[in-house]
Amino acid sequence: MEFIKQIERLQLLNKLVREKRTGSPEELAGRIGVSRAKLYLILEELKDEGICIRFSKKLNSFTYENCEGLQLGFSFKVLEATEEISINAGKFFTFFPVSNILDGSKLS
């Protein structure tokens, strides 16, 4: 699943940046399994969220500029039918409201 790969990628990126052992941009991209261009897209997305990560030539590593790191997590659980009903409070949600076709018959 792609979203799990993305979370794992962010977790590894966070770990390496916190420990200041990312290596060069090319090395970091290889470690997290993306191209150099994709790495910079990820860093730009994080910057848009207020997380600034910059490369330090002195340390030969990326470092956090405005924070100490990220806390990432997710959980995955398959719901039973009874759990789904309790989450939805026993109601069924329809995303397509009933509409009238031009001749007046109902479409549901």
Rank of each mutant, 00 (worst) to 15 (best):
F55Q: 11
L102Y: 12
E27Y: 03
E27P: 01
L39T: 04
K77H: 14
V78C: 05
S105K: 06
Q6S: 13
N66C: 07
A81Y: 03
M1I: 07
N100K: 14
I53C: 02
G90S: 10
K20F: 01
A29R: 01
E84G: 06
R9V: 03
F62Q: 00
I85D: 10
F92K: 11
A37P: 06
R18Q: 11
Q11H: 07
T22S: 02
E26T: 07
L41C: 05
I32W: 02
T82C: 09
I4T: 14
F55C: 06
A89L: 10
I51W: 12
K47I: 03
T82G: 09
C52Q: 14
K106D: 13
R54H: 08
S99K: 10
A89R: 14
L41G: 10
N66Q: 01
I87S: 04
R54P: 01
G30S: 01
V34Y: 11
V78T: 11
G104Y: 07
F74A: 15
R36N: 15
K15D: 15
L43N: 10
E19M: 04
S24M: 00
G23A: 10
T94Y: 10
I87P: 06
L13C: 04
E45G: 09
E49M: 10
F62R: 00
K58V: 09
N60F: 01
E65C: 10
F62D: 01
L28N: 06
N100D: 14
G104K: 06
I32C: 04
L102D: 15
D103P: 03
K77T: 12
L107G: 04
N14K: 02
R36W: 03
K15Q: 14
T94L: 07
A37T: 12
S56L: 01
Q11K: 15
L10P: 02
K91S: 14
K91E: 15
K38Y: 04
L72T: 00
P97E: 05
F92H: 11
G104W: 05
L72E: 06
S86G: 08
C67F: 07
L12W: 00
S56K: 10
S24N: 01
I42F: 01
R18T: 03
I4Y: 13
K91W: 11
K58Y: 11
G73F: 10
P25E: 12
F55Y: 15
R21Y: 01
L72F: 03
Q71M: 08
S75L: 03
C67D: 02
Y40F: 15
S24I: 02
S24T: 12
A89S: 13
S75N: 10
L107E: 11
F92C: 07
L41N: 13
A37C: 08
E19H: 09
N60H: 04
I32Q: 11
F55D: 09
E2V: 05
E80G: 05
I87E: 11
L43Q: 04
M1T: 12
Q11A: 13
C67Y: 06
V98N: 12
P25V: 09
A89Q: 13
F62M: 03
T82H: 08
